[in-house]
C-alpha cells in the first residue's frame, strides 16, 4: 500500500456525505488494490480483466475493441479509501471485480456506495451485474441486492500469490431492482 492512502482525520461529518467517487487510472488502481489479492509488489501481474469461469462472452480482438474497463475509487477528504472496477462481459452484462475498502473504513457503507457509483456509470443497456463473492461476504452482497446465481455453488479460489485458498460463489444483480446505494 502506498503512503498516500492513510486514515483521514476523525470524521467530523457523516462519512458518506464526505465521500467522493470517481475514475482512477488503471496503473494506480491496480497498485492500490493489490492488497485485496495479496499482490503487493506484484501489481503489474494484475490484468485489467479476467474471464471469471466462462463469464466473458467477448473473444479474440473483441477483448480489446469491445471491453471497457472502468477502475474507480472512493476518497474521503481527498484520501482514497476504497476501490473497485467494472467492465462489460457482453453487450448486456457487467462484471464487478474486486471490492476493497481499507480495514478502518469497513461497515460504513462506503463499499456499497462505491459499487452503486460504478454501476451507475453504465447505460441501462447493461441490465445485469455479476460478481464473485467470497463465502464470508455473501450475506453482505445479498443486502446490496445481489443473489447467488441459480444453479451455482461455492468453488475453489486462491486469491493471489501465497494467499490462503477459499471459496467463492457467483452472484448477480439485475439493474431494474432497487439501487444498492
Amino acid at each position: 500500500m502506498t503512503t498516500q492512502v492513510s486514515t483521514p482525520a476523525t470524521p467530523a461529518t457523516p462519512t458518506l456525505a464526505r465521500l467522493r467517487c470517481g475514475p482512477l487510472g488503471f496503473e494506480t488502481w491496480r497498485r492500490e488494490i493489490a492488497p485485496l489479492w495479496h499482490m503487493e509488489g506484484a501489481a503489474d501481474m494484475i490484468a485489467p480483466t479476467v474471464n471469471g469461469h466462462g463469464q466473458m462472452q467477448y473473444c479474440g480482438r473483441e477483448l480489446a475493441e469491445r471491453v471497457r474497463v472502468l477502475p474507480v475509487a472512493a476518497a474521503l477528504d481527498g484520501l482514497r479509501v476504497a476501490w473497485t472496477s467494472i467492465y462489460n462481459i457482453s453487450d448486456q452484462a457487467l462484471r464487478l471485480r474486486g471490492i476493497y475498502v481499507l480495514p478502518q473504513w469497513r461497515s460504513c457503507g462506503i463499499g456499497r456506495h462505491l459499487v452503486a457509483h460504478a454501476i451507475d456509470q453504465w447505460p441501462a443497456t447493461w441490465d445485469r451485474v455479476f460478481l464473485y463473492a467470497r463465502s464470508e461476504n455473501v450475506e453482505r452482497y445479498r443486502r446490496w441486492g445481489f443473489a447467488v446465481v441459480e444453479g451455482h455453488g461455492p468453488r475453489f479460489h486462491r486469491p493471489g500469490l501465497g494467499a490462503s485458498p477459499g471459496l467463492i460463489v457467483q452472484m448477480i444483480r439485475w439493474r431494474d431492482q432497487t439501487s444498492p446505494g
Binding site: 457482453s90 453487450d91 453504465w122 443497456t125 446465481v149
Partner: peptide, 21 residues
C-alpha cells in the same frame, strides 16, 4: 450451456457505451 442466456450476447456492432469508460 448457460453462456449466452446468463451472460448476455455480443452484437454485430459495438454497443453504445455512453459516458462509460
Amino acid at each position: 450451456g448457460e453462456g449466452r442466456d446468463l451472460y448476455g450476447t455480443v452484437g454485430a456492432v459495438p454497443p453504445d457505451f455512453g459516458d462509460a469508460a
